[in-house]
Every structure is written in C-alpha cells, then in structure tokens.
C-alpha cells in the first residue's frame, strides 16, 4: 500500500433527504495522520458528510473509499470496515445498560475477538488515558457529560481505528466540560491519529487542525491550513461566518 494514497477519499459525493439537498459534489482527501476540521453554519451538511464516511448515512451519488477500497453495502463487510473507522457522537451514545468498562470492552470482545481479560486490561488503560480510570464500574448515567464523552472516545479507540470521526463532540456539553474533551482530542491529534472533526470550536481548529474545511449549503466552500483560513478567508460566506462566531 502506497503511503501517499489518501486514507479517506471522497469524490463527487451527494445526498438528499427527500427533496432537500444536503450534500453536493463533495471532493475530499484525508491523508494518514492528518487532522481535518470541518466547520460551517448549521445545516451546511457537516454532520451528514461525517456520517457518510462510515455509512451511517448512505451517499446517493459519488464514491467514498477508505484506503482505496470503496465502502461496501450493508452487511458483514461494512461492519468490519466500521470497526476500523471510529466515531464519536454529539450525544455520546454510551450503552446505557453497560458499565463504563463494558462499553469499552464490547467491541474488542465481540468484533476483534479479544479475550475478556485482555479487553478488560486494555479498557482500563484507555480509560486511564482519557482520565476516567476511576469510573470503570459505574454506569454512564452516573458520569458527567464530559466524562461520558471521554469514555466514548476510549470506546472508539479500543477498536484501534485507522481514522476517527467526531460529530460535534462538544456541542452537547456544558462549557466547563468542553475543554476536558478537547484536551483529549488534542492529545490524540498530537499522537498522529487521523481525524475528521465536525465542530464549532474554532480554538481547537486553530490549534490542532492540519486543515480546515469550510462548508456552506452542502458544498465545500474552502479548504486550507488553519492559519491561512483564519488569516485570510477567500469567500464572502467564510468571512461572514467567522465574523459571527468570533465576535463573541
């Protein structure tokens, strides 16, 4: 496998919900180890784009390839692929009936075929790494939002994914908890994890992103390094958007 081949490649991806057009002609390459932050006004299709990459939404047109292989249709092969593409949701979506540790262990045991003992050990390592090592035996509802989201990151990491998708990971959090999640994400980025992050956190985009993708009305309007994008946005829309989000 050539190392200059993009890990994720989207070509001409489009999608509609009924008569509403949400994505049009999306071309995007994400290289190994690259952190791509997707920003844009709400309703611009950011989340849908993110969810198309692991086929939680099905693109109507265009092609999506992971490591050069097109996304398979629904079935066992897609499940295998999803194991390699981690995802962190806005609303955490931790399994409510399982303890924090069991949440992290489920994938490795059921999908990767790890022994329970090995998965247990690995889960505790990961929980320690995201700073919730003391809470392994608790249920998700007993944790704060920030803690839950860090567990969700540990759950995704447990699969040892090639790429991690973040779908507005801090939007459901109280302000004082946002930073603890962003810290974990920043550390992951520094460790070389390939990430696609849909977020409104401009600070994170500036600090951790290799590239910022700005979306508007279902299209990619701009794609540039963060200092270039934030320093001199090329389009009217991007300037408007930045003016609004940075004014407060």
């Amino acid at each position: 496998m050539r190392t200059d081949q993009p890990l994720v490649r989207l070509r001409g991806v489009g999608k509609s919900f009924g008569s509403a057009r949400v994505l049009t002609g999306i071309d995007l390459d994400v290289r190994r180890g690259e952190v791509v932050v997707v920003i844009g006004p709400s309703g611009s299709g950011k989340s849908t784009l993110c969810r198309c990459v692991n086929r939680l939404e099905t693109a109507d047109e265009g092609s999506i390839e992971i490591e050069g292989r097109p996304l398979p249709a629904e079935g066992a092969e897609l499940a295998r692929l999803r194991a390699d593409v981690g995802m962190v949701f806005q609303s955490f979506n931790l399994f409510a009936h399982k303890t924090v540790r069991d949440n992290v262990m489920l994938g490795p045991v059921r999908v990767r075929g790890l022994s329970r003992a090995a998965a247990h050990e690995r889960a505790d390592e990961l929980l320690e790494r995201v700073g919730v090592g003391a809470h392994g035996d608790k249920y998700p509802a007993q944790l704060s939002g920030g803690q839950q989201q860090r567990v969700a990151i540990a759950r995704a990491l447990a699969m040892e994914p090639r790429v991690l998708l973040f779908d507005e990971p801090t939007s459901a959090l109280d302000p004082e908890m946002i930073h603890e999640v962003l810290d974990v994400m920043t550390a992951l980025a520094a460790d070389g994890m390939t990430m696609i992050v849909v977020t409104h956190e401009m600070g994170f985009a500036r600090k951790a992103a290799d590239r910022v993708v700005f979306m508007a009305e279902g299209r990619i309007a701009e794609s540039a390094a963060p200092d270039v994008f934030f320093g001199s946005p090329q389009t009217e829309r991007a300037r408007d958007f930045l003016a609004r989000v940075l004014s407060h």
Partner: peptide, 21 residues
Amino acid sequence: DRGQVEAARAIGLPFRRVVLD
C-alpha cells in the same frame, strides 16, 4: 434511543450482535 444502535454499528458490531448486545 436510535443513537444506541448507531453507536453499536459504529464500532462494527454485526446486525446479530447489535440486536443481542
């Protein structure tokens, strides 16, 4: 909650395990 199923699918659980686990 729909999100529970999405999370299960997102970690690569096959349909059978999504249902059972």
